[in-house]
Design a protein around this nucleic acid. Structure first.
Length: 423
RNA sequence: GGAGAGAUGGCAGAGUGGUCGAAUGCGGCAGUCUCGAAAACUGUUGACUUUAAUAGGUUCAAGGGUUCGAAUCCCUUUCUCUCCGCCA
């Protein structure tokens, strides 16, 4: 959530930034400023009336203790007038604040100055590439054939038990999931991230704090009976660890990591793009999250990008890093880097991680603050990234490392998997 | 699911209708002492909000009510704890 003060200080600049994100309702900015001014003047009226009530009530207290009942009764009459005023004002305040909240929640985060212009994924900018695209042997197959060939996952079974997009991992396929999760978590913990295993459902407040509500309501599974949402990412429960929290400056940065299954409704298309593990409703992911001093968030963003990059390098996968253009970025993000790995049999890039700086957009909703050296309350900055989402990593591992003899896993994974590969 | 108890500042914990934004202790910060630190002593110390400042307003789980006045009385909700039931 943007701060009203930011809009007030420089409305034209805010509008210019919002346009970069391809946001159309620029008149909302002026509407919000007007609503806030209205809110303030009503509040002043209320405060004045309330101040009158308080002052007279205090006098009445004194009169009563000195036994001056006649004057006290007279004073009581004075309060009545103030009370009518105060009630009117407070009714108006509730209405205006509601409007203000509904309006400001519609504004996405402002993109950072480094964010490239553009509206579609084609306009994202490739920042870096790494790794080697392998030359596959002539009988190489797409991963959905390999999953079947080695009995690693069963889509029909998932379809029977639950529905489309809920694969059942089996045998070595299940073990590969487990080894990857373990490997990723160890890698993150070694880099100083503190591990959590969070709840996989969250309440409305948590979903609002990280920005899933009200913007992405339709993308989450909703347990209506208990008003809970299945998490679309561990970002939601783990970032909320620090909701309504006042940190000490020296507690920053807070570095957290968590494994969780992720549930996404993703009203989707059909065909090759979503075949196999390319897009599913439930998948495993390990997430990294940081809460940092505002002055350091961009430095930390680079560190997190480098961290994910190191992880991909250790898996010996070919990858590229994209800086997302304004139109392709998420609602809550100020800048986002996407990581894609090359799926050598499908011959296409698949997104496996997304690393973002949210600046204080989430922390403003969450009220996650710290006291700075001048003893002033300051909103922290929040960042997160996947390290990593499993399905597409699995797809690439299977496709890129396939040989006539079997799938020879990268060295880093072998000890976790307990074998050289899948045969 | 049934019965009972409770929710107060960073923490512990007083406070049952008026000078309570809240005693006291711990913690934090500053000072005295010291080469420095510890101890001791002294002072200071919640959040949100309006204001240039002075000065206001809100906030004792949340929402509503009674009252001139509510942390304190009443109602509703949420959460926590104890006991019973059920259960991996």
């Amino acid at each position: 959530m943007l701060q009203v003060s930011v809009l007030k200080n420089n409305p034209e600049w805010v509008k210019e930034r919002l346009s970069v994100k391809n946001f159309k309702q620029l008149d909302l900015v002026d509407k919000i400023i007007a609503l806030d001014n209205e809110r303030k003047s009503i509040q002043l009226g209320f405060d004045t009336a309330q101040s009158g009530i308080n002052a007279i009530s205090k006098e009445i207290g004194l009169l009563m203790t000195t036994g001056n009942v006649a004057e006290a009764t007279e004073a009581k009459a004075q309060v009545a007038a103030f009370k009518v005023q105060a009630a009117e004002f407070s009714e108006k305040i509730v209405a205006v604040e509601k409007q203000l909240h509904e309006a400001i929640v519609q504004l996405p985060n402002l993109p950072a100055k480094e964010v490239p212009l553009g509206k579609t994924p084609e306009e994202n900018v490739v920042v870096r590439e790494g790794g080697q695209i392998p030359n596959l042997y002539e009988k190489a197959q797409e991963h959905w054939f390999l999953l079947d060939k080695y009995k690693l996952a069963n889509f029909e079974l998932g379809n029977k038990i639950t529905g489309a997009g809920f694969p059942v991992y089996t045998g070595q396929g299940a073990k590969l999931q487990r080894s990857l999760v373990q490997y990723f978590l160890d890698f993150n913990v070694k880099a100083g991230y503190f591990e959590y295993l969070p709840p996989f459902m969250v309440n409305e407040q948590s979903a609002f704090a990280t920005g899933q509500l009200p913007d992405k309501e339709g993308q989450m599974y909703h347990v209506t009976e208990d008003k809970l949402y299945l998490i679309p990412t561990a970002e939601v429960p783990v970032t909320n660890v620090y909701r309504d929290t006042i940190l000490k400056e020296d507690e920053l940065p807070v570095k957290m990591t968590a494994y969780s299954p992720c549930f996404r409704r993703e009203a989707g298309s059909y065909g090759k793009d979503v075949r196999g593990l390319n897009r599913v409703h439930q998948f495993e992911k390990v997430e990294i999250i940081q809460l940092v001093h505002p002055e350091k968030s961009y430095q930390v963003l680079d560190e997190m990008v480098a961290h994910v990059e190191a992880l991909l390098n250790s898996l010996e996968l070919p990858y590229r890093i994209l800086r997302l253009c304004g139109g392709d970025m998420g609602f809550t993000s100020a800048i986002t880097y996407d990581f894609e790995v090359f799926s050598a049999a499908q011959k296409r890039w698949l997104e496996v991680s997304s690393v973002s700086n949210f600046e204080n957009y989430q922390t403003n909703r969450m009220k996650c603050r710290f006291k700075d050296s001048n003893n002033k309350m300051v909103l922290a900055h929040s960042l997160n990234g996947s390290s990593l989402a499993l399905p597409r990593i699995v797809a690439c591992l299977l496709e890129n490392f396939q040989t006539a003899e079997g799938i020879i896993l990268p060295k880093a994974l072998q000890s976790y998997f307990g074998a050289e590969g899948i045969f």
